[in-house]
Each structure stands twice: as structure tokens, then as C-alpha cells.
Write a protein that binds this DNA or RNA. Structure first.
Length: 223
DNA sequence: ACATTAAATTCGA
DNA sequence: TCGAATTTAATGT
């Protein structure tokens, strides 16, 4: 079971709950570690937890009919995912793959459903979260054909910096260029060139094992 | 795929 | 415990 302080740190919604609700939530959340490259959950299999990245990096992905990987979204510390499958009580619609050693906080379905039904503050958070995701995906559809590697990298990074989804995130990401490639669905050298392009345009600065964002606005709307 | 460089680790005083 | 030497990891082309 997770500690009260750890829950407070991971879950912005926890602060809005009553003491009793928060304690109830805490008792339904456990931590689990996943090693780099491992599958957290697989498409078409059930995984009855709502999950939060405590530490690490992962991607949600699916395979196109031709067998090509399509990355839906990358997630890092503070991001919650899987509420859709838990609410519908159905198998996952995509895979979650750990891109580095990662620990997740997992809330079991009964706890989730009870909070969802009984706590207005919790439901409010969920609406906010789902709405923000929807906006993100609508942005993707809107720019459907722009699939240049640079644009994909720009959008992949921007999604990790979404203030609504990651309240604690700053302007800096601890992420290697190889991981950027995995998130954007491009090779490492291509990610390197894309990052260089974005740097030349003044959108970000590159460091070893990290990226500093200078212009999130333009990164989000790249292309 | 290879060359370069930064960072992390080991080793010896 | 400090710093040099070595190894490993990330980056650039």
C-alpha cells in the first residue's frame, strides 16, 4: 500500500478529497515496478487498474493493420492512464510498454469505481483529465497529414509538457534522444536530426540526457 | 555504423 | 576521501 505522502505527491485530486475518501483511496493503491522494455499491459487483455507513473517513462501504443507500431502517447512521472478501460470494464485497447525502468502506482477497480461514483471531486478530476486527452488527440487528427519526423518529435515532447496532465512539470525533461525516438516512433538518428532542427528554430535547447523547452506554444503547434 | 564526448565508476594513494 | 584513469552511455554525423 502506498504512503499518504506518496499519494499526495502523485495525485493532484487527492488534495480535493475528504480525509475519509483520501484514506480509502490510499488503501486501494499499490506500487509496482516494471523493467525497461517490459509490457505493463497488452492490447485485448484485461488489466483492472487505473495507473499513474510514479517514476520512469512509458508509451501507449498499438499496431496498425500492416503491423507498424503507432505510438498514441508517451507518459512520464505524474501521468495517469487507463481510466477508459477501467470505467468500461473491458480489455485494454492498446499496449503500455516501459521505455525505461518504471514504477507505477496502481489503483484497483473497486476503489476507482467507488470514488468515481461517490466523490464529486474525484469525478471532476476525471472529466478534466479526459477532456485534456481529447483535446490532445483532436490536435493530432487536425494535423493528420503532417507526419514529418520533426513534427512528430515536437508533438511527442509537447504532450509530455502538458500542464493540465502534469501539474508538476517544469520546462525541462530528463529524456535521452533514444527515448525521444521511441516516443515519436522514429529512429534515434532521426530523432537527433529532428531535435537539432527544433533547436535551430529556437524551440528548445539540448543537453546530455535532457531537453530544455523554450517555446512550448510553438512546439505544440508545430507543422 | 562509427567517431566523439560527457558522465559515471573504479582504483590507488 | 580525493582525483586520475577507465569504462559506459549518449550524442553527432
Amino acid at each position: 500500500m502506498i504512503s499518504a505522502s506518496a499519494l499526495r505527491q502523485l495525485a493532484p485530486w487527492a488534495a480535493q478529497l475528504s480525509d475519509a475518501e483520501r484514506e480509502y483511496a490510499r488503501q486501494g493503491v499499490t506500487l509496482r515496478a516494471f523493467s525497461q522494455g517490459s509490457f505493463i499491459c497488452c492490447q485485448n487483455q484485461s488489466f483492472n487498474f487505473w495507473a499513474c507513473v510514479s517514476d520512469g517513462l512509458l508509451k501507449l501504443r498499438t499496431l496498425s493493420p500492416e503491423g507498424k507500431e503507432v505510438v498514441l502517447v508517451g507518459m512520464h512521472a505524474g501521468g495517469w492512464f487507463g481510466e477508459g478501460s477501467v470505467i468500461r470494464n473491458e480489455p485494454r485497447r492498446y499496449d503500455a510498454v516501459a521505455l525505461r525502468d518504471t514504477t507505477l502506482a496502481l489503483m484497483d477497480r473497486p476503489t476507482f469505481m467507488r470514488l468515481f461514483e461517490d466523490s464529486p471531486a474525484f469525478s471532476h478530476f476525471l472529466v478534466h483529465q479526459i477532456n485534456e486527452r481529447l483535446a490532445q488527440f483532436m490536435g493530432l487528427v487536425e494535423h493528420d497529414r503532417m507526419l514529418s519526423p520533426t513534427a512528430r518529435v515536437a508533438r511527442g515532447l509537447a504532450s509530455l509538457l502538458n500542464q493540465a496532465l502534469y501539474p508538476e512539470v517544469g520546462r525541462e525533461l530528463d529524456i535521452t534522444q533514444e527515448e525521444v525516438g521511441l516516443l515519436a516512433g522514429v529512429s534515434r538518428p532521426v530523432a537527433n536530426q529532428a531535435l537539432k532542427t527544433l533547436h535551430n528554430e529556437g524551440l528548445l535547447a539540448l543537453g546530455r540526457g535532457g531537453i530544455a523547452i523554450h517555446d512550448l506554444e510553438r512546439l505544440q503547434n508545430y507543422g
